[in-house]
Amino acid sequence: MDIQLKRGLLDICVLAAIKNEDSYGYQIIKDIKPYINISESTLYPILRRLEEAGHLTVRSVEHNGRLRKYYHITPSGLTRLSAFAEEWKEIMSIYQFVIRGTKK
């Protein structure tokens, strides 16, 4: 897959993974992996980027005597997700055209 495209999709997948409930790094990777390949070292800059963009917030929760960071999607992150859904409707129609070609 094109690197730029994958980068954009990974951002969206991470936001989707925390859309319904707050989640932590390891769980996010487990949720995304069936759909798109992601490693621990790939997730880290994505989380940072999304946090800096204001799409998610972080809070530390105590778990088994240590701290675990939970990521929470913000309204801006939700907007980003719905914008993605709209964009992809358009891309899917282009995809249909590419597969089908022009009608004669």
């Binding site: 932590y24 790094g25 769980q27 621990e40 070292s41 880290y44 989380l47 088994n64 240590r66 960071k69």
Partner: peptide, 26 residues
């Protein structure tokens, strides 16, 4: 460092050994 510590701890909690968890980090 916090991020990778948490990741390794979570991997080990899932039953991986310390070395296996570290290997996953790249």
């Amino acid at each position: 460092v916090d991020y990778y510590t948490e990741m390794i701890d979570d991997c080990m909690e899932e039953g991986m050994t310390s070395a296996q968890a570290v290997a996953r980090m790249g």
